[in-house]
């Protein structure tokens, strides 16, 4: 069987007010980040690229208290599953922070979130392929 997700506690970088350093050196609060901040950071960081990861299914996880998110990732449309706690925020293109349980995200991190839904396109990163 697959290993359980590593932790039920998320790092505090999702806490409202957390200071985030972009690849350009600019500092922003997590709640102020915009799509362009991620896109620009990936452009200047080298080695990393931003992928569009579309949520195609959201299910209860086999691990209690987790949800399983199914994505299709990047140009290759690769299928990737991720077990996360429902309060885990994802950054959706053109929308901003979104989670399966915006109320839990607000409770734990005070971070305003939309509800993550099937069809949402999230920002993810992968290694830039060398061709």
């Amino acid at each position: 069987p697959p290993l359980p997700p590593h932790s039920t506690t998320l790092p505090s970088h999702f806490m409202k007010g957390a200071i985030i350093q972009l690849a350009t050196g600019e500092l922003k609060r997590v709640e102020d980040l915009q799509t362009q901040d991620f896109v620009r950071s990936a452009e200047v960081s080298g080695g990393l690229k931003i992928d569009s990861s579309t949520v195609v299914d959201i299910q209860e996880s086999q691990w209690p208290g987790f949800v399983t998110l199914h994505f299709v990732v990047g140009e290759q449309q690769s299928k990737v599953c991720l077990d996360v706690p429902p309060e885990h925020p994802f950054f959706v293109y053109g929308q901003g922070w979104s989670s399966c349980s915006p109320s839990q995200t607000a409770q734990l991190f005070a971070l305003p979130c939309h509800r993550l839904q099937v069809g949402d396109v999230c920002i993810s990163i992968s290694l830039q392929s060398i061709s």
């Binding site: 970088h13 200071i19 690849a23």
Partner: peptide
């Protein structure tokens, strides 16, 4: 006296998942 508090700064890439697509056939 109030001691200055250190502020944690997190890198941008820690906020988004690393989803490595499987290699194409």
């Amino acid at each position: 006296n109030v001691e200055p508090r250190s502020v944690a700064v997190f890198p941008w890439h820690s906020l988004v998942p690393f989803l490595a697509p499987s290699q194409p056939d």
